[in-house]
Amino acid sequence: MGGNTIDWRLIERHWRDLMQVALSISQGRLSSAALMRRLRSNSRKNRVYKVFRKVGRSVRTVALLRYLADPALRIRVTAATNKVESYNGFAQWLGFGNNGVLADNDPAEQEKLIKLNTLLANLVVFHNALDIADVVRGLVAEGWTITPADLGALSPYLRAHITRFGAYATDELAVTPEAFNPVLAEVDFDVDLAA
């Protein structure tokens, strides 16, 4: 069979092998890393490798067909992709030193830089979320009606208020912040957004 066709007979012949591998991984007897090493060794001739490739192609084909046939799924996938891209762009903007280039070839140092950048991004997102919650509470106190859809349109990836190279006030370090209340009781989240 050609490279673009799924060989269902091959999958059927080696279904037991596939299930053995899946059970070994789920029971912790085989790590996914060990499996990848085994499959990589002489992978072109490895029958399990070939079967996994065929199954992977069939799964990708089904997923693609579902994506093409379901407009709601496309909207969800696009929204999720946009959120991830927004976060990545935000984190990259925060990691401005050396234009985001990991100049060290040491994997431990590279991992440390990536984790620190992720920590910084998460801290700024958390701070932005606190600020957004304060503003929402203020608007509700003024009589505005805030819906879950309104909140869903907000993004915690705000940057305009961040001065990366500016003067930083240290006199506020002694100010104790108010206790954080994570619940926005002022917003009715029971409203059915699908309607």
Rank of each mutant, 00 (worst) to 15 (best):
N88G: 13
F90C: 10
A160Y: 13
N42L: 05
A80V: 14
N105E: 14
N46Q: 07
T118H: 12
N42C: 08
P148F: 00
T118R: 13
G95S: 14
Y87R: 14
D70H: 03
L113R: 14
R66F: 02
V125Y: 02
T61F: 10
W144H: 10
A149T: 05
A79C: 04
L119E: 03
L65E: 09
A153E: 10
I75P: 06
T61N: 11
T145Y: 01
M36F: 08
R74Q: 11
V136Q: 00
N105S: 13
R38D: 09
W93R: 07
V59L: 13
N128I: 05
V140D: 00
A133Y: 03
M36V: 09
L120M: 07
G138C: 02
V136N: 00
L113Y: 10
L116H: 06
V140S: 00
D70V: 03
K50M: 05
G97Y: 14
L39C: 05
Y87E: 12
E109K: 10
R66S: 05
V140E: 00
K45N: 10
A133H: 05
A129I: 02
V51P: 05
L116N: 08
I146L: 01
L65F: 09
Y87Q: 09
L158G: 12
V124G: 01
Q110D: 04
V51N: 03
Q92C: 13
G152M: 04
N82G: 15
A63L: 13
N82W: 14
S43Y: 11
F126L: 09
I132F: 01
T81G: 15
V124R: 03
K112R: 12
V136E: 00
V62Y: 13
L73V: 00
V140G: 00
N105H: 13
V48T: 13
I146G: 01
T81H: 15
D134Y: 01
A79I: 01
L73S: 06
N99V: 09
L123V: 08
S155F: 07
A69F: 04
P148R: 00
N117R: 11
N82F: 15
I132Y: 00
E85Y: 13
G89R: 15
L139D: 07
R38E: 11
A91Q: 09
A149Q: 08
G152A: 06
K50L: 05
R40Y: 08
F96M: 12
G100T: 09
